[in-house]
């Protein structure tokens, strides 16, 4: 075929017509959006949640969304620089917990940024002991602390990992004031480090997750690597929404045994402390409201369909969509609750 002016014009026109629906759907949003996440790992739950949501949202809006695992500090920096809406951030509760714990490089997301819609919950945040540990339950642990025994808890400081540890100390304080001093942190890094701290006998309790540690709980007791769950921080309502089969050998009913109310870590003597690890979006404070509105509408549409919800559940996430206004108010209230607990133990 000879390429003349007419054929070139016709080809350009066809491309324009084909591109029309996509352009229309995303008219308020840039064609290419970068979703930075508050984790540098592409093997963790943040990347997984971001990938699933970004995939569904990009199809719905007809735009490209690229997930970049840059970590909290670089993520907030990239977001702060870009008011055009080409950079958005997906993160979880660490976004404000890091700030509450005073970790450098963790700004207050409610101050310099706009905290947006909530997306999903990972119900897996857990605490474990060695299978042959003298402590079988959280009650054993808190009783031991009250009796003056030192309990070493391996955590990664300054975030989701530490909030459960803070709650344990708070519960010890409520039960027997002063006994919280017997629950001490072993500051480690990755999940591998926390596991290793247990294998080396350096920690009595470790923070972990259902996803990363379930297989270790299936090992025989004489195996040095064998572990046992003692506490899942998620609310029972959240766990009830998880697949009945659970994960691996741990069914949903088993999970409920390790969560409130069956396993109680008290907040104030009457109610239990619970913590759902929620994932949400954060925007540059000067991003156009129409763009945020378009994302809210896109999310509402994808969460109304079964496909995304099924995919999240399959990956052991609980769908938890709340539009920007509700999500932001909910997270601010949540932040205030945890601030009280953290401040009480300072």
């Amino acid at each position: 075929m000879k390429l003349n002016r007419r054929t070139v014009m016709a080809a350009a026109a066809s491309v324009a017509i084909l591109a029309q629906p996509m352009m229309a759907a995303a008219q308020d949003l840039p064609r290419n959006v970068r979703m930075v996440i508050g984790s540098t790992s592409t093997g963790g739950d943040t990347y997984q949640a971001a990938s699933i949501v970004a995939d569904a949202l990009s199809k719905q809006l007809g735009i490209n969304i690229k997930v970049d695992a840059v970590g909290p500090s670089e993520g907030f920096k990239a977001l702060g620089r870009d008011k055009r809406g080409t950079t958005i951030m997906l993160f979880h509760d660490h976004a404000y917990l890091g700030n509450l714990y005073g970790i450098a490089g963790n700004p207050d997301p409610f101050d310099g940024y706009l905290v947006g819609p909530t997306l999903t919950i990972n119900p897996g945040n857990a605490y474990l002991v060695a299978k042959n540990s003298p402590y079988q339950t959280m009650d054993d642990i808190l009783t031991a602390a009250a009796n003056g025994e030192r309990i070493r808890v391996a955590i990664q400081p300054g975030g989701v990992s530490e909030i459960g540890f803070t709650a344990m100390r708070n519960a010890a304080r409520v039960r027997a004031p002063g006994s919280e001093e017997n629950i001490v942190p072993v500051n480690t890094g990755s999940q591998a480090d926390k596991n290793q701290a247990m294998f080396d006998g350096l920690a009595d309790v470790i923070n972990g997750s259902i996803q990363a540690n379930e297989q270790f709980t299936a090992l025989p007791e004489n195996d040095q690597k064998a572990m046992r769950f003692v506490w899942l921080t998620a609310t029972p309502e959240t766990l009830q929404k998880s697949p009945e089969a659970g994960m691996g050998a741990l069914s949903r009913d088993d999970m409920l045994q390790y969560a409130s109310p069956q396993t109680s870590v008290t907040l104030d003597g009457t109610t239990d402390f619970t913590f759902d690890k929620e994932f949400f979006l954060i925007y540059n404070k000067d991003m156009k409201p129409e763009m945020m509105q378009a994302i809210d509408e896109g999310l509402a549409a994808v969460f109304a369909q079964d496909e995304l919800n099924a995919r999240l559940l399959e990956a052991f996430f609980i769908p938890d969509f709340q539009p920007m206004a509700e999500g932001s108010a909910h997270l601010m209230k949540k932040r205030d609750t945890y601030r009280e607990v953290i401040d009480a133990l300072k």
Binding site: S41, Q48, A212, F216, A218, L219
Partner: peptide, 14 residues
């Protein structure tokens, strides 16, 4: 590990 988690396969001692 990301490839496993994206496919919903647990990696661990089993």
């Amino acid at each position: 590990i990301g490839a496993f988690t994206l496919q919903g396969v647990q990696v661990g001692p089993l």
